[in-house]
Design a protein around this nucleic acid. Structure first.
Lengths: 357, 357
DNA sequence: ACTGGCCTCGACAACGATGTCATGTACGAT
DNA sequence: ATCGTACATGACATCGTTGTCGAGGCCAGT
């Protein structure tokens, strides 16, 4: 050992340009430590069956060469072929809601040494399959997807090949798999109930693209709840397919300046809420017409009035999705299930405005 | 050869549950097409030297088996060992600023088929090296890093081994490499100049952690600009190490209720700006005391008054960083450089408030 | 008919690691 | 002294792909 140490030091000082040498492999470490490469593998992977003395020799050599395991090469042969990476498909990594989900997933999977490939969908159904294919080519251990294409049947072959799969935000179409979603209908219903309990009877709905499942659910929940309260649902003004702030603003302006305007507005999504807020402000109605938005946002409490929202819990969605994925990776064989994360009504003022007497 | 084909077909028809079979490899495709696996490789990778007839046979077999190239295995042998993946280290994927950068990078690299591993730093210097190490173990083709540790010298060995490296938001310490940053000092200076030109002489600075380079730069730019205008800089109230909304709010409250309070506030970062906004509102000073924040945020124009900011351009930072990384990956050998992305003063009202006469 | 060149193609080794298995060694039990 | 057992260790095949190189077929030119 002492001898080894001496050799080590000598060798060190001999290497004039260690930085420019090629990346060391196990073979190099093995040679330097004077052992076989399998022994190096054992030490690096903390497998048993290596004497402490050998272990130290290998660790020294490894440190000296700045050796680093090549995970890709390893997973080629390793049992189960785990690559310790998963693919995550989001509407967009720049969207704050997605960002929170991304973060929760990163935290949950990072603890297990699993890295995340994230990709943005940008509401383009055609990208969905292309990105999934790219993930598969990288042999990810699992996928967490926000589906947008009309059907997810294309992943069936992979799924039955045992590729763990969890959908988030929306449920898959054309196949069965785990999903983690917000209680969209219930959340929207609670918004309606809240407005009605505040005395409103003329409610309006501003909604997102109708080809998005969650948008349809929110609308359904909202309308059904109104019906349950005995208010005729056929007369509710409904404006849909609003997909950005400006179209929402225009729709809200139109609603509010029409004859017999609504006294309360429910908006199904952040950008739509922003548009409605702008319209209300333009018309000076911010403190006259009630507003509840689906999805919370930064500074909602700093608006005038504060904006009442149905908050989703992206961290919980992400965390749960990651947990389900890990369970599947670990061999859980339960039948697929949809997990529902409850939303939460947060009162901040705009939703508590009473209708004019 | 013909024999090969025959054997294979038999094998095929024997497999009763193709969906449950293992993932097909080139060997399977080769067998089905009745060619050698190198030919399959050539077809899949669009290499020349394959007759059209053979090409079609291979493509058919590939489609029939739903074959997909294993990138990891390929990059093991491929010249240059490209994995077509890069590592991205951000303050947090859930932070909107980081999200924009992430998105711009994804777009720029995705066009080249490069996938992105993103990880969050969470202001923890110890995570930095751990995450970088994890990236390296995955043999990424390059790294884009937001440094936070005191020194980035630990990547020198890798960098000189030709690992492309681009820093964003902050410049590296202890080594030389490309960096893409905002003109922090100039941006802060322009805020100071704007306030001074509005007639203010009693300016205050609310700043982030002083161990963050950008925070120091912003402070420097702000203070120096004030000095240039002949205002004694020693009397400027400076509160630093504010790292969340609450501490910023308290600091602002303290400043504003002290004797001879400032007539204008500059806040060096989003959360600090939010805290300042809250303090101003609590004291009813929102329309009395000027405020300029560094970094733009959603709904800044919907506040009362609208919040004037020095906007950074995360999309440009991300895009530029990705372009530099690609250039390095493609062999660009220029000496390392720091690229500066200009910030932009956006007037929305809060920064245009005049001092009381 | 023979040569040489071009084209197509596949056998084989190699990439860096891990799984399998055989070998060698030490030690306690007989 | 002998045996058996447990432990430590390394040789070798292998994962799925790509790089190298040589073999064979075809054709034009002599």
């Amino acid at each position: 050992m002492h001898l080894e140490g001496a050799i080590f030091l000598t060798t060190m000082s001999d290497r004039s340009q260690p930085a420019l040498s090629a990346r060391p492999t196990m073979r190099h470490v093995a040679a330097l430590a004077g052992v076989g490469i399998k022994t190096v593998s054992r030490v690096i992977n903390d497998e048993p069956g290596v004497s402490e003395a050998t272990r130290q020799k290998v660790l020294n050599a490894s440190r000296q060469l700045n050796y680093q395991l090549d995970m890709a090469a390893g997973s080629l042969r390793r049992a189960g072929r785990r690559t310790l990476s998963v693919g995550l498909l989001l509407p967009s990594v720049s969207n704050p809601f997605s960002g929170e989900i991304n973060r929760a997933i990163e935290d949950a999977l990072g603890a297990r040494g699993i890295a995340v490939f994230a990709a943005s969908l940008d509401d383009d159904p055609r990208r969905e399959q292309a990105i999934v294919t790219a993930f598969l080519g990288r042999r990810v251990d699992g996928l967490i997807l926000t589906p947008i294409a009309r059907s997810q049947a294309y992943v069936i072959p992979e799924h039955s090949r045992d590729l763990p799969l969890v959908f988030i935000d929306r449920e898959p179409v054309g196949m069965e798999a785990d999903a983690v979603v917000t209680d969209n209908a219930a959340g929207a219903a609670s918004a309606a109930a809240h407005l009605i309990s505040g005395g409103h009877t003329r409610l309006a709905y501003l909604g997102d693209r109708t080809d998005i499942q969650t948008a349809r659910e929110r609308r359904r929940g909202f309308v059904e709840e109104i019906g349950r309260h005995g208010i005729p649902t056929s007369t509710i003004p409904i404006r849909e397919n609003l997909h950005n702030e400006e179209s929402a603003r225009l729709a809200a302006l139109e609603l509010l300046t029409a004859e017999d305007p609504p006294t309360a507005i429910f908006s199904s999504q952040n950008l739509v809420t922003f548009g409605a807020m702008r319209a209300l402000r333009e018309l000076g109605l911010s403190n006259r017409v009630a507003l509840i938005g689906f999805d919370d946002f930064t500074l909602a409490d700093m608006m005038d009035p504060g904006v009442t929202v149905i908050a989703q819990h992206p961290e919980q969605i992400g965390k749960l999705a990651a947990e389900r994925l890990l369970a599947r990776i670990d061999g859980d064989e339960q039948p697929p299930r949809t997990y529902v994360v409850p939303s939460e009504l947060i009162q901040r003022g705009s939703g508590e405005i009473r209708p004019p007497a």
